[in-house]
Design a binder for these strands. Structure first.
Lengths: 189, 189
DNA sequence: CTCATTTCTTACCATAGGTCAAGTGTGTGG
DNA sequence: CCACACACTTGACCTATGGTAAGAAATGAG
């Protein structure tokens, strides 16, 4: 098999051979070159993306024209603007490739249909969002109460793969600081 | 009916009369006086709580002995330490009542069993966690990039009920600032 | 190989918010 | 109805991080 989608589903829920076929046909494979937008502000986020190989980031641009990054995701992970995707209202985010990227995508309607065909997926995504929520709260806590230096070191330890593949400007934004601050932090360590 | 649990479930998923009975018998009603702990650090978080009436907060105490609040929840909402609850590993959090509180609770094992008996609940909680995750990301973004003044005004507008029921010390911590800063912000507005 | 672009660093000053310490109310339990 | 804990405020000072601006280093397209 050329992707790990089913492998990940099977970690948390039972997927029969039959269901496997249904799922694989519901996800549409595609790819983009580096530095292309999969989503732009004002559009409704049509798809939930599973990255097979590559790197995508989601970010928005504030009133002052500054970029703020929400997520940086590498191989075998999910990305979307869930707020827009599930409500089908316009997004304020960009989703952009930072590397040439192969992915699988599924539209909102097709996913709803798929939940009906393969109810076990509700379980998978329930667990996925549960974990995502716990992680988001942990990241929230860190941004509130942990110094930039400590957050940097922590990220260096826990997500070293990102440091090897993504420019520091983006990492700074993800950490909630300016590139200049990140640079100063790195000098001192 | 004396609580809105089923009402909320039915907002996002179908619950038959029969399932209703099963669910209601799985949740155990209980109550606590003000200022009591439902969870203490070191314990495994045994329950997922649905607040019928009252107010609960979750927080932890850092190395320096400072409290940091994760969540403040009022009537008709869920609270737990999901990280501990789902992994069944020791928690670092307190869950404490800020008012006399009536709640419903369900244990981890009972909930797993309930998912098997009423699979539609997977859907409900999938949507619940999905929304919780989107909210957590929004709160994360605000703490990173929005000034304390603006976060205060936003919270005042969107969660005015909390301001009427909860001391400002707790709100400050929830906003990610010190009580002193909150006081200064309030003076200026 | 070279030039243009992107990425990263440095230095300077500005500021939001934290820390510490000392207040002033005020609600409630004995 | 008093006292004491709790909630909140204020002021003086401090520090981490931001803003701006400039230049160095690395990367990549032709």
């Amino acid at each position: 098999m050329d992707n790990k989608l089913i492998y990940y589903f099977r970690k948390w829920t039972d997927i029969s051979e039959e269901a496997e076929g249904i799922i694989l046909s519901a996800f549409e494979p595609a790819s983009v070159k580096k530095k292309k937008d999969l989503l732009e502000p004002g559009e409704v986020c049509q798809y939930l993306y599973f990255i097979v190989k590559g790197c995508l980031r989601s970010y928005y641009v504030d009133d002052k024209g500054l970029e703020h990054i929400y997520q940086i995701r590498l191989d075998n992970s999910w990305i979307s603007d869930l707020g827009s995707f599930f409500s089908q209202k316009p997004s304020k985010y960009y989703i952009e490739s930072l590397e040439d990227t192969e992915y699988l995508r599924i539209s909102h309607d097709r996913l709803e249909q798929l939940y009906a065909e393969v109810p076990q997926l509700e379980r998978y995504f329930r667990i996925l969002f549960q974990k995502a929520y716990v992680n988001a709260l942990a990241r929230l806590n860190d941004t509130m109460w942990v110094s930039a230096v400590d957050r940097y070191n922590q990220m260096l330890k826990e997500q070293s793969d990102i440091f090897q593949r993504v420019p520091l400007v983006y990492i700074a934004s993800y950490l909630g600081i300016t590139p200049e601050s990140l640079s100063r932090i790195r000098r001192k360590s």
